[in-house]
Nucleic acid binder design. Sequence first.
DNA 1: GTGGTCTAGACCACT
DNA 2: GTGGTCTAGACCACC
Lengths: 117, 117, 117, 117
Amino acid sequence: MEWTLDKNRPISPQLCEKLAVMISVGECKPNERLMSVREVALSAGVNPNTVQKSYEELERKGLIYSVRGSGWFVNSDITVANDLVNDLIKEKTKVFFEDMVKLGLDPGKIKKYVEEW
Amino acid sequence: MEWTLDKNRPISPQLCEKLAVMISVGECKPNERLMSVREVALSAGVNPNTVQKSYEELERKGLIYSVRGSGWFVNSDITVANDLVNDLIKEKTKVFFEDMVKLGLDPGKIKKYVEEW
Amino acid sequence: MEWTLDKNRPISPQLCEKLAVMISVGECKPNERLMSVREVALSAGVNPNTVQKSYEELERKGLIYSVRGSGWFVNSDITVANDLVNDLIKEKTKVFFEDMVKLGLDPGKIKKYVEEW
Amino acid sequence: MEWTLDKNRPISPQLCEKLAVMISVGECKPNERLMSVREVALSAGVNPNTVQKSYEELERKGLIYSVRGSGWFVNSDITVANDLVNDLIKEKTKVFFEDMVKLGLDPGKIKKYVEEW
DNA sequence: GTGGTCTAGACCACT
DNA sequence: GTGGTCTAGACCACC
């Protein structure tokens, strides 16, 4: 499992994003069991508390639910996951364009710049 | 003077970026005096210490220099400023595309998505 | 822990020098945890912000690194620390001899003077 | 006239030291007129106020005296100047050795180190 | 007036 | 508990 975490940013929201995407694209099916907190912590090299916090955050947002003694499971309705991912995409794109403008690039240059990628 | 600071991100680097752009685009000419620490603090609505920190960071990077009792001045060589701004553009673009990929968008979709803007 | 700070000079660089020496002579081994910002502040009788500033300076120079929520650690490569200490020695010696010359002492007198110590 | 000022240290005391040495070694004889404030300021590239402050400091210490409308003059008794310079030499030497010890050099190494110069 | 440094105290995110 | 950031306010030296 690849986590590609950016250590300069808070870990917890990064884990949330990654898990939301996994659910949204169907890498984890509805009602399927997710990796245990310990497994994620070990494979991602982070503190179990941080993973726990992420899972709780996703539960609060309605993407997953927990069953005492057996683990965390994907919610049967993945609409929330899709919405969350779409919001993230929009938000990050918005911030990106704002940043580019702040850095002195006009829309034309940005478009040209992006196309080079 | 418009500072348009994002309160969700640390202020100090935001000031650095803004000042670097101003120098890079020639809004502040070489050897010209910059706004005083206190002036920036007042107009941006932040603490003088935060501005001081930003100025020191820019000094460390070779964009500006200080004269005791007189103020901060733009370095005669603005190459560093240009490089810094270009690096920022590249870095932010890189992070943006990585984020998009992490969020499940393939290059084609990203391009389409960007063009809508 | 003895800090022997000279209150006539800025504290921050003095802390940097002291810490660099500790690392250089092996009083703090590579990847070992340093005293926390608060501990140093308490034992040295200075403000935590001042210690924080020193640690950041040493991080910038590549002697140490920080782990959020866990502490500051000595870099695995202590070459930089050794270099920094050697540079300090050379610089201070150079300034000392220049000062002596400025004060009217010729090399012969300086040597004689130093040997008396 | 060579002033060799270190811009990282306060200008005023540096000027005092330099002038004291000039008087002590007889470069300026007793009751001789010193360079005017303006001349010093111009040749040293500093603010006239700073020079004025240095002259006043030296007057307070009894090295020189001023005559309204005609300038500053070396005191007939240069004992004070000699004492001041000797004190400076002792003080700087003391600080130098303390610094070397702080940087991890034992007395033996310091001696060896100094002799190489 | 200016920059340079420090203290005090607060809040946040992460472990 | 830890580091990271910021605010508020003070004092100094220099111009």
